[in-house]
């Protein structure tokens, strides 16, 4: 029962204990950093052909990831093993800012990425060097078919991410995030690696053309202009009802006050 990309952040299991773990975590980070600095390097892969990127990646990994994911990415009580999750999972998690985890919770939130492109590539190279896993997908929007993508999206994605990728709630504090800030590559990576509780859609479930199509549709539906005016968050009838309750009715009541006022 080894974890794969599927078990990338077992945040759900931790959420109750975490108030008390916060202190421990800080201590671990300090310990990890110290270890990373002091420990002899590269005992796992000291072959001559180890590339520069992998080596740099391992350094980065050991500074900022190893405290939770283990010194050799083998996983700990806190976080899953990263052996075999592939470059795609690393790129998705780090470039979307979900990792390193800012604070424990039901799931990792998207935030500003902490590392630049080169650093993320190095970390991805290191994790990919541990065991084969999904590579960072090559997204080709031109290859995508908007109609096919729309149908695939509605069957497989909309049930959690909503019809326009606005996101939605899941059980016990988890949620399917809004897709607007995600880049096409990140969307494809999420499909391929299934971050956290998201199901995995591997190459034999959806081929590259299908993934390109879904990504193209997501790009369209989150970025296209709305012909009918303000989109109201694209959450369906709830914000529409709120607009009537907060704008429509009060505006008209104010008008009745004006009309009813005696000169």
């Amino acid at each position: 029962m080894t974890s794969t990309a599927a078990g990338f952040a077992a945040a759900g299991r931790r959420r109750r204990k975490l108030a008390s773990y916060a202190v421990l975590l800080t201590a671990l980070v300090v310990l990890g950093v110290t270890y990373a600095v002091l420990a002899p390097r590269g005992h796992a892969a000291s072959t001559a052909e180890e590339s520069f990127a992998v080596q740099k990646g391992r350094e980065l990994f050991q500074t900022s990831c190893a405290t939770c994911h283990g010194i050799n990415a083998q996983g700990t009580q806190e976080a899953p093993s990263l052996i075999g999750v592939g470059a795609a999972a690393v790129d998705f998690q780090v470039s979307s800012g979900r990792m390193p985890l800012a604070r424990p919770g039901p799931q990792a939130d998207r935030k500003e990425a902490k590392y630049d492109r080169a650093q993320i590539d190095q970390m991805a190279a290191y994790v990919a060097s541990l065991a084969p896993g999904p590579q960072i997908p090559q997204v080709d929007l031109a290859d995508g078919d908007l109609q096919l993508g729309g149908n695939l999206f509605r069957t497989n994605c909309a049930s959690c991410h909503n019809f326009a990728g606005s996101g939605g709630a899941l059980t016990y504090g988890k949620y399917a995030p809004r897709l607007t800030p995600a880049t096409p590559v990140q969307v494809a990576e999420a499909i391929r690696t299934g971050p956290e509780n998201m199901p995995v859609f591997g190459p034999s479930t959806f081929d590259d053309h299908q993934v390109n199509s879904i990504v193209k549709y997501v790009d369209y539906v989150t970025r296209s202009k709305n012909p009918g005016g303000l989109a109201l968050g694209k959450f369906g009838p709830v914000p529409e009802g709120l607009v009537i309750a907060v704008v429509g009715i009060p505006a008209l009541l104010a008008m009745t006050l004006w009309i009813g006022a005696r000169a």
Binding site: T155, N156, G194, G202
Partner: peptide, 10 residues
């Protein structure tokens, strides 16, 4: 083999 672990298909 069409589905990965943690995969779902309608």
């Amino acid at each position: 083999g069409d589905l990965e672990y943690g995969g779902i298909l309608t």
